[in-house]
Nucleic acid binder design. Structure first.
Lengths: 195, 195
DNA sequence: GTCTATATTACGATAGAC
DNA sequence: GTCTATCGTAATATAGAC
């Protein structure tokens, strides 16, 4: 490194600002002017770092997807009984949602108006399918209740896990990843009712 | 009635078209041009029926909120043990979500960029709070597991229920309201694990 | 009630100076 | 790397004819 670290934007640091604004106002509700104000530089300066709004979206959802797909490559997601692997994946999904909160939040709100958004939706479906397969295998082993369709059960679990982005805020001394993950796993597998 | 029913738009029929497009493209991603094409009339004709885009949004989320708050006025939501009342409310939330699907979908995606959106968010919080109180009372009775915070449990249930709008489609011979409601109540209260 | 035409503003993106 | 100025387009909404 020949130059000292300068206080200027890189595509990466700009991304964190942009993602925050996207999540506050929605992607379509965010103009380059909004980003410019939030970043403290002019609109045209943003174009020096990235090709446009859509590149910021692409970078953001890619990061989220990488985190999620990474879970499926972990040892505990690949060896063991389907039920144990499923529990591991659910737990890790919560952890990734929280550690990559703004990026996953944006991913989960994508609608499909642009090419990037449609690509993101497709990859999400791919991930969902992989988890559904796991739940199906656990059901075949008799570890999952048989009075609820596997497909429907998968969707309810995803609903519960994904909803975390709607309320979890890291500020202050709130709950940690571990605490939320424990609660989700408990409620998803054992239910709310006092055992 | 002095005139036969004509094949023309009213604010109500126009609303159903608009809400469908809003849900497909997102509210901010939908222009009056998009609505015009979908309704088969010109942009300016839309302004004959409603004052603008935001009125369509207001009418839509109002309808959704009326359906949800209506649940709290039902007998089974007001008398009986908190646990029974909670189960009734959860079941009815699923039914209202499904019977008013496009309207509730739109409500759940509101971000807060306009006055109407902020009003909708506030009323949603009000409803959530009412249900949280119910869950709190059930927990005080010892009917809800005590190793998960009441506040967190409420959020997970809402996550599961609200996620229905992301995948439920009434087309064809899919699941009915009753089937989905049963599944949600089972998973929420008893969990996925084979009993 | 619906249309064409248009006013006006906001948007994404680029040009070119420094 | 950042800026001001600006281009071309698309947005919301209105005017006024039929």
């Amino acid at each position: 490194m020949t130059t000292a670290k300068r206080d200027t934007y890189t595509p990466e640091t700009l991304l964190s600002v942009a993602v925050r604004v996207f999540n506050e106002r929605g992607y379509d509700g965010t103009s380059m002017e909004h980003l410019s104000k939030a970043a403290g530089i002019s609109k045209s300066s943003i174009y020096h770092h990235v090709s446009g709004k859509e590149e910021l979206l692409r970078r953001a959802v890619s990061r989220a997807l990488d985190g999620l797909f990474g879970i499926l490559d972990e040892d505990h997601a690949r060896v063991g009984s389907p039920a144990d692997r499923l529990e591991h994946v659910v737990r890790r999904m919560v952890e990734v949602l929280i550690s990559e909160l703004p990026y996953v939040t944006l991913l989960l709100r994508v609608r499909g108006n642009t090419g990037t958004e449609r690509w993101a939706l497709e990859r999400r479906r791919e991930f969902d399918h992989r988890v559904a397969e796991l739940l199906k295998a656990a059901a075949a082993d008799g570890d999952i209740r048989d009075d609820v369709e596997v497909r429907l059960a998968t969707r309810l679990v995803f609903g519960m896990v994904n909803s975390i982005v709607e309320w979890y805020r890291p500020d202050g001394r709130g709950m940690g990843e571990r605490e939320v993950a424990d609660a989700v796993v408990r409620v998803a597998f054992a239910g709310l009712r006092q055992g």
